[in-house]
């Protein structure tokens, strides 16, 4: 399999540093992103000349471009009706980051409903190897995960911290109100109980197909086809990446040519 280009580019720099805090105990740690974004992103170009397009904020009333400094944030309460917020008002309610992962409870790792898992990060010791190793070993032996919260980028998240492959992992969780309760779907309330024979037959099929969990058995087919396509394009049709020559730059080039000629005399 071809070496993943994004993988090579992946920066190994911590995105956050702080401490895991359990009561009076502190374990200083650094946080690394665990999940790589593998999505292909395309830039939108002008079909005619292949130049990148830029986005502008255009006022829907007069179609004029609006500068960033002339914008405010509005919350839409009804269609086209807004309440307007000043930056100070929004800043005042932002969560303050205190660089702590506060754990207040330990639960069985397997008891956490996977639907709440959001993003995972790798924690590494920040000159706290002994404390880190102790905490990791103990929660691994007990099969526990620490539950608590952390504030990152002005947002507060519920988190769990647990052992995985010799590291402490922090996974942010979704809030209860962010996850839909299946009971709210009417279709599910109409389910019938299956009969005994049917259950036995279905169980047999499943047992026959049972195996170990191995995520590497799955490939991202779209991604592989996309990579192949890019490689072909790179070899064959050369994508012309022209430096944009605006009118202004052209005029400067004319001036430059004339001046250079005069200076040579």
């Amino acid at each position: 399999m071809a070496k993943d280009k994004n993988e090579a580019k992946q920066s190994h720099r911590p995105i956050w540093s702080g401490s895991i805090t359990i009561g009076l105990v502190n374990v200083p740690v650094k946080l690394y992103t665990m999940v790589r974004d593998h999505a292909f992103s395309f830039r939108l170009l002008h079909k005619e000349d292949g130049q990148p397009l830029k986005y502008e904020r255009v006022c829907i009333k007069d179609d004029k471009v609006v500068d960033w400094k002339d914008t405010v944030k509005g919350y839409e309460i009804r269609k086209n009706e807004f309440i307007v917020f000043k930056k100070e008002e929004l800043d005042a309610i932002r969560a303050e980051s205190d660089e702590r992962i506060r754990l207040d409870k330990f639960v069985s790792l397997l008891s956490i409903d996977p639907v709440y898992f959001d993003k995972s990060y790798i924690l590494v010791p920040d000159r706290s190897e002994e404390a880190y190793s102790l905490m990791m070993t103990v929660i691994q032996r007990l099969g526990k995960a620490g539950m608590g919260k952390v504030t990152m980028r002005a947002k507060e998240y519920p988190v769990v911290v647990y052992e995985y492959k010799g590291a402490l992992i922090l996974t942010t969780l979704l809030y209860a109100n962010e996850v839909m309760n299946p009971a709210d779907l009417e279709e599910l309330s109409l389910l019938k109980k299956p009969g005994k024979n049917e259950i036995e037959l279905a169980e047999k099929i499943i047992k026959d197909l049972s195996g170990e969990f191995d995520i590497t058995e799955y490939r991202d087919g779209y991604r592989e086809r996309m990579e192949k396509l890019i490689e072909t394009k790179l070899k064959g049709e050369i994508v012309v990446a022209e430096i944009p020559k605006k009118e202004e730059v052209k005029e400067l080039m004319v001036a430059l040519q004339e001046t250079i000629k005069r200076l040579r005399k």
Binding site: E248, V249, E251, L252, A255, L256, E258, T259, L263
Partner: peptide, 25 residues
């Protein structure tokens, strides 16, 4: 280049650079 440096005259930075290129000799 499009930054306006002399607002009264609506002169952009490109014009300033062009001036200095042309006056350079």
């Amino acid at each position: 280049l499009e930054k306006v440096l002399y607002p009264k005259l609506e002169l952009k930075k490109s014009r300033v650079i062009e001036y200095y290129i042309r006056i350079a000799p």
